[in-house]
Amino acid sequence: MAAGSSIDALGQFELHPVLGALGESLRFSQSPMMMIVAALLVLAFLYVGMRPAAVVPGRLQAAAEMCYDFIYNMAVDTIGVEGKAFFPFVFTLFFFILAGNYLGLLPFSFAFTSHIAVTLALALMVFCLSIIVSLKVQGAKFFAHFMPAGAPKALAPLLIPIEILSFLSRPVSLSIRLFANMVAGHVMFDMFAAFTIMLAGLGFFGDIIAVGPVVINIALMALELLVGALQAYVFAILTCIYLREAVAH
């Protein structure tokens, strides 16, 4: 973080092997470890929450059911009746990202969603799924979408490349949005935390002023809690929108 008089705000994103030699050989870094923790948390939330299976739910069960209903309604309202089939996928995607974003806010933790490779892989998975569903449902008509209905045919050489480019930019925007938000938040955390440590070394006045970055970091934590949920939601809702276009006849 703060090494001497410099700030290494990006060092937090470096990947290191965990579990010693086994981790090195398996390319197992802290990122997949946090993915496993995130997956376990999501599963534990549902399994422990739904263990009472009560008709009148307790707090944890009610929370689990609310999460279920929230994603189910999002999928069905956005995609349509066909959304039921994609609900488990959207649920997995939303809570995997949400848990990843929130786990990254814990001290000594790691936000795997701050890696473009991870977010791009997730975005490409959504992109490929939407193409597969489109081809399966619409067949060759899928390609007709690249020429907007009602547009003059003379404009086709201009419109079709633009539409294709717009379509291909989906995974890019989807992945960079999540990645950039997470990186920006964590860099700001690191910067202000480093300010606190450095200012504390400047004596009495430094001690007093060092309170400022701490207060800012507290506010940033609230902001990041919002951003973490919002980005997971945006990723999930865009997935639903792409799938709606894919299942539309």
Binding site: L15, L43, P88, A117
Partner: peptide, 19 residues
């Protein structure tokens, strides 16, 4: 860095199992 691509492969497996 092999860990950058490694996390994608691990992530795919973890996501699949979770799904």
């Amino acid at each position: 860095n092999p860990y950058v691509i490694g996390q994608v492969i691990w992530g795919a497996g973890i996501f699949l199992v979770l799904y």
